[in-house]
Write a protein that binds this DNA or RNA. Structure first.
Lengths: 239, 239
DNA sequence: ACCTGAACACCGTTCAAGT
DNA sequence: ACCTGAACACCGTTCAAGT
């Protein structure tokens, strides 16, 4: 496929653009280059196409962001599988925990996910299907619809595997630098400084490895919620 | 202060620009016109100044957003007051609940707050001071520093009054329209449709008034967490 | 030191035109 | 129906110049 002078030719038939190809390209760019790199122009150039061509397959940029969330939730659903909920009513908690931790595993592979999900205005159909499965597990555990509804709100973003915490890890300065700065404020925030100096983990070589273990804290929060829900489940009037 | 031809003159001395004036203007614009209206140019014109002048008082737009979060947290701290934590160890839960609900009341007056807080990379000093007070309450309740640390992660954004839920209320379509759409998918998501049709509240006149009561769900989630924390507090080994 | 005007390097998106 | 090129209406920010 070269001309006589050795120049590469364009292929005669190009793969037609589809919504799915657009979304897959967008996910790849967000994964590899970060959310800031995800522009309409960047997605287009990745597909060897002009930016304006994307608008035939996606309404606008918001719709593109909705779309990549759908792709990610489909990935979660595939990982979770479609086994029936456990028949033992007391097995609901472990089953739900497994689903959430699976979702988290997928989410962690897509660092852009939390901030994009948090800005979605409407809920896509794939996430409704994911929640349907959570709901099926709770119903098999004897939850009333009302309690299950509360449960979903209480779990919030944790239900799909991210934490809803306030701040991302700040990789601007080292933990030692942070700690030194905090020490200087001990008179103003004594409890805070004491707590954090105790929480600063060190490895065998004495190197500091961070204040918080994200996975541990995530599991602590999920278990706190699931334990509380289990207690309320058992307090329900029999129906 | 008019010329002979009746034209208004500029005042001879203008109020000097300060960081505080910039931030207060930014908060007002975000409150009244929404986050999308909050541009450097808009803030500048509100202060009768060129956009570039802002950069003498604020590093860049991110710093401006950091700044308006600080302003808001200062407002929360002022509302919360600085009373000592209760001396009765069992009073921690009510005290903490009050702080959180106060924070929420302030937050609800600033609709931009959740999305701006969620995008902050680093934690400002005012929010550290707020957490210091939460921590003081927990310590007075007998929490170990370790448990208090877990508690803060578990509460996450709820600690300062917003929910960390996945989706904002969708005011695009009416609840009746949503319900009709859902009914059409009953074969695919049976539990979901049953749950939501039961959750659709109606007022005395039979008008639908929404699926979810945000305040109720927020309190349910906070209480679930606080109850769970209280149980873990009592399970702590005596030290 | 503080403020300005013009310009730069981007965005998402519209539009009229091509095939 | 699908894709294109140029243009529009914005952004945040840099820079050299004013006072």
């Amino acid at each position: 496929m070269t001309t006589t002078d050795g120049q590469l030719q364009e292929p005669a038939f190009r793969l037609p653009l589809t919504r799915q190809r657009v979304l897959v390209a967008a996910v790849r760019i967000a994964d590899e280059e970060g959310l800031k790199a995800l522009t309409m122009r960047r997605v287009a150039s990745d597909l060897d196409v002009e930016a304006m061509s994307l608008y035939h397959h996606v309404d606008n940029k918001e719709a593109l962001l909705d779309g990549i969330c759908e792709v990610l939730v489909e990935e979660i659903i595939a990982e979770v599988g479609d086994a029936d909920p456990p028949s033992d009513p007391d097995a609901w908690q472990a089953a739900m925990r497994d689903m959430i931790m699976t979702a988290r595993r997928v989410m962690l592979a897509h660092p852009w996910a939390p901030s994009v999900f948090e800005t979605r205005k409407s809920i896509g159909f794939s996430i409704i299907r994911y929640f349907e499965r959570l709901l099926a597990v709770m119903r098999a555990g004897g939850f009333s619809y009302d309690l299950a509804h509360h449960a979903m709100h209480a779990l919030g973003s944790r239900a799909i595997g991210f934490s809803g915490e306030l701040f991302q890890p700040d990789d601007g300065q080292t933990d030692d630098e942070s700690m030194a700065m905090l020490e200087g404020m001990r008179d103003q925030i004594p409890h805070m400084v004491t707590m954090l100096s105790g929480a600063l983990h060190t490895d065998e070589a004495g190197q500091t490895i961070g204040f918080c273990d994200d996975q541990t804290e995530f599991e602590f929060g999920v278990d706190l919620l699931l334990d509380g829900l289990d207690r309320r489940r058992r307090e329900q009037p029999d129906t």
